[in-house]
């Protein structure tokens, strides 16, 4: 019994916004199953009292002063940025119709 089914891959693809083909779904299901079985080995070590590490260096409280664009900050040229957009209109990024809400 594989730990990752084709249906699960389809769900992951949806969450990841990937419009996978049927062939890809089959292909990835097999591969992801093999990978997940391999990486599941992380569960072998006893870690009951081990805290997780999210950051490799123990830094804290790295804050920036509340100053608008101090020297050394990249300042963008709007025209340059919008020229790189797939579509722009009226000084804004033009995007296809948005479903849903907010």
């Amino acid at each position: 019994m594989p730990s990752i089914t084709r249906e699960e891959v389809a769900h992951l693809a949806k969450l990841s916004r990937l419009e996978l083909s049927d062939a890809e779904l089959d292909h990835f299901a097999g591969q992801l199953d093999a990978i997940v079985s391999a990486v599941a080995r992380v569960g072998e070590l006893p870690t009951e009292h081990v805290p997780p590490t999210s950051h490799p260096q123990p830094l804290t409280n790295v804050f920036r002063a509340d100053i608008v664009r101090p020297a050394g900050t990249p300042v963008l040229d709007r025209a340059e940025v919008l020229a790189q957009a797939p579509a722009a209109e009226d000084e804004r990024f033009r995007v296809p119709r948005i479903l849903g809400e907010d």
Binding site: F63, R64, D66, R69, L76, R78, V81, E91
Partner: peptide, 30 residues
């Protein structure tokens, strides 16, 4: 460190970070 003024012309108060450009990084405002 982009300004926050209300009502500025569109997309003038943006930088790589708040546009989410590849490679950009955040730094917390103290």
């Amino acid at each position: 460190s982009c300004p926050t003024e209300f009502g500025a012309a569109p997309n003038t108060q943006v930088c790589p970070t708040c546009l989410g450009l590849p490679g950009s990084l955040p730094v917390v405002n103290g």
